[in-house]
Design a protein around this nucleic acid. Structure first.
Lengths: 183, 183
DNA sequence: ACCTGAACACCGTTCAAGT
DNA sequence: ACCTGAACACCGTTCAAGT
């Protein structure tokens, strides 16, 4: 990437920074990726990054938001499928960034910035899931519980290496117990 | 603590090191706790820690094993209670070290040492849970699934701040769906 | 507005040297 | 066997200076 200044605008530049950072974070891990390394990959001095982001954590938030909105763009097509397929999709979507999921959880107790982002993310996710469950005739309270359980199962599968069979068994079990027996 | 050398034996010394490290890890977080800080608290030079542990990660493993075996000592009394109470106990037991749970998950992709410990821990936990479930007449396969789900729910609750109601609702829901309806 | 050079305080870790 | 002093390479971050 060129060392251009001023001739490419802020959003384009941030996009490039975040894409490089995302790639390194996902392959080498957040802690193992130094600001110097990211800068080096971009042909830039480490300090440069601090013009765009106040801290490494803030860069991480930028990366998370970008990955998330990229995922959400692919969401519409699967909106009509079964709950099990939807969970399966979410799992696959997060699979590549599983290291980041663990990173976020690991930083919860140290970084208020990450804590905020995490809280917002879960609130948005829950309300989306609850909304679709209610459309299926499930009570608000029950929908809330199921949404949380589904989230924990996805995160558990992401956090721990597992076989395909394990994943399928769990999704199957949840699918059968989630909906109150449609007699 | 005294700077004694040779006059107190290795196990006692390691106990003191790990207790101090555990306290700091749990209150300030693992990354935020430097080796220097731990050493300072012990009235010792940072290098000293490296005579006992090859790395900070190894010290963490020592801390984890100590906390775990301390918890296991309190296990017998609750062996007879209901599954829901047992899960509740596990939750409460891990509550204080919730930061460490997140730390371990966050380091999975970077540290082979932690990965090993984590794998061993989950294997031991699963086999214990499966064993008790089978005693209740549940098939091995079903017991495995339930054990994994229970683990993910506990970890989810630990990783995310939650209200008492949320916790009770989830445990209640699991309790009702876990055991194949005892007619 | 954007980027660099040089520096800061700190980190985990090593090693030769002391007792 | 146990511990220290001094050093190493590196980290995230800051700031004054350049264009």
């Amino acid at each position: 990437m060129a060392k251009n200044k001023r001739d490419i605008d802020l959003d384009v530049k941030k996009k490039a920074l975040e894409e490089t950072a995302a790639r390194l974070f996902m392959t080498c891990g957040y802690e193992a990726t130094s600001m110097s390394r990211i800068a080096q990959e971009l042909g830039v001095t480490p300090n440069t990054l601090y013009w765009y982001y106040a801290s490494k954590d803030e860069l991480l938030v930028g990366v998370l938001n970008r990955l998330l909105s990229d995922s959400l763009k692919q969401l519409p097509p699967i909106m009509g499928s079964s709950p099990k397929e939807q969970i399966s999709w979410a799992l696959q979507e997060f699979e590549q960034s599983r290291a980041l999921v663990n990173t976020v959880h690991g930083k919860l107790s140290q970084s208020a910035l990450i804590r905020d982002w995490h809280e917002r993310f879960h609130r948005a996710l829950e309300s989306a899931v609850v909304h679709t469950l209610k459309a299926k005739g499930i009570s608000t309270e029950q929908a809330r519980i199921l949404a949380t359980v589904a989230t924990f199962l996805v995160e558990g599968l992401l956090a721990h290496p597992h076989t395909e069979k394990q994943r399928d068994d769990i999704l199957e079990w949840f699918g059968q117990n989630a909906l109150p027996d449609p007699a």
